[in-house]
């Protein structure tokens, strides 16, 4: 009993440390003065902190433009993913139809397919369709990546709202569409918002497709990877960029964490 609990707690500790320690190190390094960063041996906890590194990063050419690009791509992704996944989720949640289970499985199975394999054909296809190096192209790939998540989350949101409520609205004179708009949608809104924010984080952090498919119109992660690998950006720049990338994701996940838990809880059931 106690041994079992000890095991669970130590596992939890290891997993938490695995996630938290890098975040902590990056955050510390992002505010460490440049000369301290290059010292050897480097102190674990620097004596003084500075905003100089962050300032340097934010003044770097293209950072603000890339941030804007990232936000644009993320918003477009949310719009496209919801336009496709939300109706599918509603159908999966409300109707029993032939092939429903296999469809649900197929949506998740796409996540097992390594996106790397697709990179060359995708780049070729995008060049052919004049989508290469456009933000729309990146948004399309991000949409494809996020549809499974959005479908799973939104389906569980709709499943959680009793169909009897819509039926009650219909017996009271609503059409099917009115019943959805006046009863189901308002109740689903918090869950939909959580799914939207989750999609935002997914797109904001996505680096692979963004790097492969753009040259001049970089999103922020692509820009950072490019400047690190291609231009050999200095250590402090990397830390500042990493920190800048992490913060929005952290804040958002912190805000919606309770939703994500309940949502996935419903999905598991």
């Amino acid at each position: 009993m106690t041994l079992r609990r000890l095991g669970i707690y130590s596992a939890a500790l290891v997993i938490s440390a695995w996630v938290a320690v890098p975040l902590l190190l990056i955050s510390i390094a992002a505010f460490t003065p440049r000369d301290v960063l290059y010292q050897w041996p480097r102190p674990l906890w620097p004596e003084q902190f500075t905003l100089e590194t962050m300032r340097f990063f934010l003044r770097f050419t293209g950072v603000w433009q890339s941030t804007l690009n990232s936000v644009f791509v993320a918003v477009l992704t949310i719009g496209l993913a919801f336009a496709i996944a939300a109706p599918a989720s509603y159908a999966l949640a409300r109707f029993r139809f032939r092939g429903r289970d296999s469809l649900q499985l197929a949506i998740l199975a796409t996540k097992m397919f390594p996106a790397t394999v697709l990179s060359i054909p995708l780049a070729v296809a995008f060049i052919r369709w004049h989508l290469y190096d456009t933000l729309l192209g990146v948004a399309l790939v991000h949409t494809a990546l996020s549809i499974p998540f959005v479908t799973v989350i939104v389906t569980s949101v709709f499943v959680g709202i009793s169909y009897e409520l819509e039926e009650a609205a219909m017996t009271l004179g609503s059409s099917r569409a009115q019943a959805f708009l006046r009863v189901t949608l308002p109740m689903a809104l918090p869950g939909l918002a959580a799914a939207g924010i989750f999609t935002f984080v997914l797109s904001w952090n996505e680096v692979f497709a963004a790097t492969i498919l753009t040259l001049n119109h970089r999103t922020l992660p692509a820009l950072i990877v490019d400047s690190v690998i291609g231009a050999g950006a200095p250590l402090h720049f990397r830390f500042a960029g990493g920190f800048f990338m992490i913060v929005p994701a952290l804040i958002i996940i912190f805000l919606i964490r309770r939703y994500l838990l309940t949502l996935w809880g419903v999905t598991v059931r």
Partner: peptide, 19 residues
Amino acid sequence: APGKRGIAMVFQSYAVFPH
């Protein structure tokens, strides 16, 4: 359609709109 039949229904789960 249900709304055009001149009926009203009380559901087992009550189906009262929570919002």
